[in-house]
Write a protein that binds this DNA or RNA. Structure first.
Length: 564
RNA sequence: UGACCCAUGGUGUAAUUGGCAACACGUCAGAUUUUGGUUCUGAAGAGUCCAGGUUCGAAACCUGGUGGGUCAACCA
């Protein structure tokens, strides 16, 4: 029949992918695509980097090209192998691989030095003896042109001599720099005779003491791309104004038609957190969080420890897209991505965070039944498990109210609920601490005919609770995480110290939680859904006799919403 | 007294390149449910920053505004 079939929504591609596929169609670079991910090894990767990684590796993958990993290690003062290792680990964890193409800007120090010498010889670079503040003031401002350095027309021979001696270690750090001779009155500040080499005597983590002069990032980055045959240099928006300078360098360097094409895209920003490496480092150093992998951190290692999967992060990145608009993405979209993933994968278990003892008075003392529970209703292949049931069980404190409001489908005096997978129980009474008002125990009876799966288990009740048999329960610590900052955009608040915006309640540690016995052997990073509560992940600190769970994210809770 | 970039529901993105503004998240209803989860159905919410212009037709092209961002490290 002529059924009007819905037009399959063609997945739209980003403007970057559009450029790439156009270039490919036009046969540029012999139809080759080669990208690179160029981190500086001076900190841990965060989810913002994940956005770049997914693009760099993703485009190469999709169009049959390659993606290099290149460490932009041009500043030995800030960089360290510790970071090199963590960066490699995080990229692999995310699901990408650079094969044997692990490069370093420091691999090109020789070539870069030769290029600098070449520029000097061609009268396109000179040694400036002035101190930093003078050079800086001569640069002018964005709205005022700069002034030429008195050393700008120094003879080639003298420049050469000085530059070599700079590298011999003959001069103090800061006493001289090498500058490219471009244009001091350019409206683009980056073109005003940028410094391209400076003296640094701190040993480099890879080249050690071989060099006394180091190229600036701007003098290393574009050329490194060129040396590696990169076709598409994808980077974030703030490098847009650097592009003319990179082009200028490549113009001096290139011998044929080939040149990398730089395309800029927007950074990833997330509500209630920040991506500034410097500020994240401060949070770590000042003990505001417990290390780079604190589950509240937006770092990849933090998210990993929190229980996020690489799939969920890739999915999230895919959802937010790449544009030139500076955007702030709602964390709820990230949370949606991890829920969506874990819903399919995480086995369901019973865990009681704030235990309240229920005594089933008509259940035989000493009797234990094993009840069968489905591990994951979304995935039959995950099978079933047996969970012990007995006369005394723990339920959640929130699941009992002495004076319940309307539509409270849980336990209250005279009300019936099902203990999931077991029986329907009815509340006959409770013990209350008269001083504190705390409910200490709840007394119930059960209906033996209502066992789940049994013939008469058709009986309907409004509420179903999770539970853990008191005698079989395993103790656990549970760490509940909330947003790190109270403000949606803590980094955007210019005046205020971002530390004042920290959420004091971002970590709550619960002890004495009760979880079902099947969890006793859970290993770090194992993920579960604590039924009716959320997704939880075993922490690295967890031990066989001291289980620790991190809450990745709560389940959607419409009851909490109406109850507000 | 500058240069460059940007502007589409609350948020993030689309709109096959000039042809009925769509999707996701979020929100709100309802159905299903032995998870107040999931799933399913539906709804509200922008007329595309503003003003002109080109065109039969503009979110898109042009001009001028407005608003936001980036650029003045011997950082990357």
């Amino acid at each position: 029949m002529a059924e009007e079939k819905k037009e399959e929504q063609k997945p739209s591609i980003s403007f970057i992918e559009q450029f790439i596929s156009d270039d490919l169609k036009e046969g540029k670079n012999d139809g080759r695509i080669h990208t690179r991910f160029p981190p500086e090894p001076n900190g841990y990767l965060h989810i913002g980097h994940a956005k770049a990684i997914c693009l760099d590796f993703g485009m190469a993958q999709k169009y049959g090209g390659k993606c290099n990993l290149r460490f932009d290690d041009t500043n030995p003062i800030k960089e360290d192998v510790e970071y090199v290792d963590s960066i490699k680990e995080d990229i692999h964890w995310l699901g990408f691989d650079w094969e044997e193409r692990e490069y370093y800007a420091s691999d090109y120090f020789g070539k870069l030095f030769d290029f600098a010498v070449d520029l000097i010889k061609r009268g396109l670079a000179y040694v400036d003896d002035q101190p930093a503040d003078i050079i800086s003031s001569q640069k002018g401002t964005p709205s005022q042109p700069g002034m030429e350095s008195p050393f700008r027309s120094r003879p080639v021979k003298e420049n050469l001599n000085l530059f070599f001696r700079m590298n011999e270690g003959e001069f103090e750090e800061g006493s001289r720099v090498l500058r490219a001779k471009v244009d001091m009155i350019s409206p683009n500040m980056h073109m005003r005779d940028p410094i391209i080499y400076r003296i640094i005597k701190t040993p480099h983590h890879r080249t050690e003491n071989k060099w006394m002069v180091y190229p600036m990032y701007d003098f290393a980055h574009g050329q490194s791309d060129y040396f590696e045959g990169i076709t598409h240099s994808l980077c974030t928006l703030e490098f847009e104004v650097h592009r003319p300078l990179y082009d200028w360098f490549i113009d001096q360097l290139k011998t044929g038609d080939y040149r990398p094409r730089q395309i800029e895209f927007n950074r990833l920003n997330l509500t209630y957190t920040m991506m500034s490496k410097r500020k994240l480092l401060e949070l770590v150093q000042e003990g505001k969080v417990n290390g780079w992998d604190d589950p509240r951190m937006p770092t990849l290692c933090g998210l990993r420890r929190r229980g996020y999967t690489p799939e969920s992060i890739r999915r999230f990145v895919d959802l937010i897209g790449y544009t030139k608009v500076e955007a702030i993405n709602d964390v709820s979209l990230l949370e949606h991505a991890i829920r969506e993933d874990l819903n399919m994968r995480a086995p369901r278990v019973f865990g009681v965070l704030n235990p309240l003892k229920v005594i089933i008075r008509n259940y035989p003392e000493g009797q234990i039944e094993e009840v069968e529970l489905i591990n994951n209703p979304e995935d039959e292949s995950q099978g079933k498990r047996m969970v012990p049931f007995s006369r005394e069980v723990y339920i959640e404190q929130d699941d009992f109210m002495e004076n319940p409001p309307n539509k409270f489908f849980r336990l209250a005096p005279g009300m019936e609920v099902r203990l999931k997978g077991a029986y329907i129980i009815k509340c006959e009474g409770f013990k209350k601490n008269e001083k504190t008002g705390a409910i200490e125990e709840v007394y119930c009876t059960y209906d033996p005919d209502t066992r789940s799966g049994g013939k008469t288990s058709e009986k309907k009740v409004k509420g179903t609770l999770h539970w853990v048999s008191a005698e079989h329960a395993v103790d656990a610590e549970v760490r509940l995480y909330d947003r790190l900052f109270n403000h949606e955009d803590p980094a955007g608040q210019k005046e205020d110290d971002y530390r004042k915006l920290l959420n004091p309640g971002s970590l709550k540690v619960l002890t004495g939680c009760k979880v079902e016995p099947s969890l006793a052997e859970a290993k770090p990073l194992d993920k579960f859904q604590f039924q009716r509560l959320g997704y939880f992940c075993v922490d690295y600190d967890s031990k066989h006799d001291k289980l620790i769970f991190n809450r990745t994210v709560g389940l959607k809770d419409t009851w909490a919403k109406v109850n507000k």
